[in-house]
Nucleic acid binder design. Structure first.
Length: 274
DNA sequence: AGACCCCTGGAC
DNA sequence: GTCCAGGGGTCT
């Protein structure tokens, strides 16, 4: 699934196609794609028709369409969600769950093979009752190193599971957790409270570096991810550990180790990461 | 911290 | 068939 760089890439691609457009209609092909207070087709349709999109943004791994009156629509793509804009001739695909029709005749498709993703309408009122939203942590690329280090201070548990915790810092998933920890020379199973502030500062630098480099490559395409134009990203060609279990460490040439950390497959180098 | 759960599809 | 997958929620 899309992590921060992938959602950022999708937002960049959708922006010119959606900004200043009006939503004239919606087609719900899978009812459970709707989340939140407007989670029935009737409520959703009634609330979304006629809204104009003033901006396309991202918060953590959520893609946001902001309307003009404090309302908005949030998409969580989870593992296999995709967003594309097509012209009116494009038929719904096998995994299309939601279609928004625009005032220029184009249509925004939300496709999601595994049905984990959702679309959630929100208003400034309802946003405060959405606990996932309320709990979201720091944006890593906006946070100062001091605030990043402070956010993890006093937290217990393995560092990788804390990196995956969206309540502390947002946007990091399984790929970028492993890649950042390798760059920082930190084992994924290290207890976070055993790391020095200097090591945590290094980790912040590595998190930012890997996220920025991935954004520059339009994200990582392993299986399902495609940007808003249907194109694959290229950052998978630059992975140092993710998906390379059993291959040689690029630094020390020893074989990379695979483990299960925080319930996720984890690849790291036992020599280079301490 | 772990074990499930939500689902589907691809690799083997 | 079995196992795996860019996420996150809940329950023990």
């Amino acid at each position: 699934m899309p992590e921060l760089p992938e959602v950022e890439t999708i937002a960049s691609g959708l922006r010119p196609q959606l900004e200043a457009r009006c939503i004239t209609d919606a087609t719900i092909l899978y009812e459970r794609v709707l989340d939140g207070e407007w989670n029935t087709p009737a409520r959703f349709l009634d609330a979304v028709r006629g809204r104009s999109i003033v901006s396309v943004g991202r918060r953590g791994k959520l893609l946001l369409l902001q309307f003009d009156d404090g309302m908005g629509l949030a998409f969580h793509l989870k593992m296999t969600g995709r967003l594309f804009v097509y012209d009116s001739t494009e038929p719904a695909h096998k995994h299309t769950r939601l279609i928004l029709t625009l005032d220029n005749g184009m249509r925004l498709f939300f496709d999601d093979a595994r049905k984990f993703g959702y679309a959630r309408l929100f208003s400034s009122q309802t946003l405060c009752h959405w606990s996932f939203w309320q709990k979201l942590g720091l944006e890593p690329l906006c946070a100062s190193t001091e605030s990043f280090v402070a956010a993890y201070h006093g937290r217990r548990g393995r560092i990788k599971s804390l990196l995956l915790n969206q309540g502390i810092v947002v946007g990091i998933g399984n790929i970028y957790a492993d890649e950042a920890l390798f760059r920082a020379g930190i084992r994924p199973d290290r207890q976070a409270d055993s790391l020095s502030p200097e090591q945590m500062a290094t980790l912040h630098n590595c998190v930012c570096a890997v996220l920025r480099e991935s954004i520059a490559e339009c994200g990582s395409s392993i299986r399902d991810y495609r940007d808003a134009h249907g194109d694959a990203g290229a950052f998978q060609n630059f992975f140092r550990v993710y998906g390379r279990s059993g291959e040689q460490c690029i630094q020390c040439k020893r074989l990379l180790t695979t483990a299960r950390v925080a319930g996720r497959t984890t690849v790291f180098c036992e020599t280079c990461q301490l």
